[in-house]
Amino acid sequence: MTRRAGLTRRQLLAATAAAAVAVPAGRAAPPAPTAAAAAPVGERLLGRGPWGTLRSLAQTMLPAGAEMPGAEKSGVCEYIERALEGPYSRYLGVYRRLLAELDSIARAGGDGSFDSLPVERAREVVRKLEASLPQDFALLRQHVLEGFLSDPVHGGNRDRLGWQAVGLVHKHKD
């Protein structure tokens, strides 16, 4: 699971998204997207391309591993989109700036968009992003961790995967 430097971000996301649907036993699979279905909140707020880039970025920051569910599987971006629609709506500008900067750093490297980068190269680009916009990046890091470890009622920490990963037995919620 940990060696996958050859995969692109998009392939990885597709794989983990499929796993996320397949793994939780006893839960109904989400309805298949149809043409009539509304676009995800994140797409509506940030645009389709940037929203996809954000998902890749979150997964680079909190990747899946042997006993780590990773950002995608644990619903980090579902948390973020809900927060951006509500209490964090004031941070939309920060997200737009971060994603534009990320895209520009990726393209300056000549490798095309961030989503298409191999894992190692994506990490380098994110390190450059952190150096370029340290405050914005710190805020994003906070939100990624909130999506991973806060109460599932806020939209993230899907199936309490974040809590399970850090060994928290939550007596109220379990």
Binding site: G65, A165, L168
Partner: peptide, 24 residues
Amino acid sequence: PLTFALRQPGWGEQYGPALARDFP
């Protein structure tokens, strides 16, 4: 867990496993 994680600097491949090891 969240407050603990916010105080652990970094991100990436090593971050999650270190968190899982050190938090409890």
